[in-house]
Amino acid sequence: MSAVEPRIYAYGIVRSCDVHDLAGARSVHGVSGRAVRTVACGRLAALVSDLPAPAETSLDDVWHDPDRIKSMVLDHHRVLQSVIESRTVLPVRFGAVFSDDDGVATALVQHRQALVDALERVDGAREWGVKIFCDRDVLGLRLKRDSDAVRVAHEQIEAASAGRAFFLRRQLEQCIGQEIRQAMIRCVTDSHQRLSAAARATATLSIQPPAIHRRADEMVWNGAYLVARERETRFFAVIDAVRDVCRRSGFDHELSGPWAPCSFADYRLGASDDEGSHRT
C-alpha cells in the first residue's frame, strides 16, 4: 500500500504537559521490548516505540501470527496501564503503525481538535468493567418462593389430574421463563442505573459467550463505566450495594479494572474523507 517501511508503533495520546510525569510509562517496555517514548506536538503528545526493522520481521507476518499478536496486545495494554496510574491517556486502537516521528506528529496536528476534545472527555477518569452473571437455578428457586404466579402454578399442578398436570407443567415452564427474563432485566436495569449515577459515562460491551467467560452461569450484562478518580470509592460502594441486593436472586457482579478509557475513545479519525480502517 505504501513504499515507506513501517517504523513507529503508537499506544495512546497524552497531554504534552503530562509528559514529564510519565516516568512509569518509560520504565515499561513496549512491543518487541523497545523503549517507550513520546512524540510531542503542541498540546498533545503520542506515546510510541520503534518497531524492529522490517528486514527482521515484516508487519504482514506479525499481523497473522497469533502468538506475536498476543504478546503485542499485552505490551500495548501494559504501556497504557502504566500511564493511568497517574495520568490521563487517550488509548489508540491496537495496531497503529506510522512511518516515522514526523508522521505521528502530522497525525496529531491533523486531528488536534478532535483529540483534545476526546482527552477532555476522559480527563481524570478511568474505565471499570462490570459484568453481571446469572445462575438460573438459584433464580428459579428464588422465584418459586417469591413469585405469586409461580407459586400458584405449582399448587395447581399438585392438585391437578395427571393429564391436566402435564399441561399445567408446560404452562409453568413458560411462566418461569418469563419471570426469569423479567428478573434479569430488572437486575441489569437497576444495577446499570445506580452505577451510571456514580459514573461520568457508560458504554455497553458485547456479552461474552460461555466459551470465553468459562463460567457455569450466564452472562447477562457487560458494561464499561468511566469513573472519575475521586468518585471511585463511591463507585465501589455502589457495586457492593447492588451485589448484595441481587446476590440472593442468583446474580453476581464481577468488576474489572482499572482500564485505560478504551471504551470511551471509540473514534475514527480519517486521513481525509477516507474514514475506514486499513492495513497494508
Binding site: 500500500m1 505504501s2 515507506v4 517501511e5 513501517p6 517504523r7 503508537a10 495512546g12 495520546i13 508487519l59 499481523w63 496486545v73 500495548h76 495494554h77 487517550l90 488509548p91 489508540v92 486502537r93 491496537f94 495496531g95 497503529a96 503503525v97 506510522f98 512511518s99 516515522d100 514526523d102 508522521g103 505521528v104 502530522t106 497525525a107 491533523q110 486531528h111 483529540l115 476526546a118 474505565e127 482500564w259 485505560a260 478504551c262 471504551s263 475513545a265 471509540d266 473514534y267 475514527r268 479519525l269 480519517g270 486521513a271 477516507d274 474514514e275 480502517s277 486499513h278 492495513r279 497494508t280
Partner: peptide, 19 residues
Amino acid sequence: RALNKGVVLWGEATISLAG
C-alpha cells in the same frame, strides 16, 4: 478493548491499522 476500542488514528503516514 485493544482490538475493538480506542481511537483509530489514520494519518498520511499511517502504514497499518488493526484490520
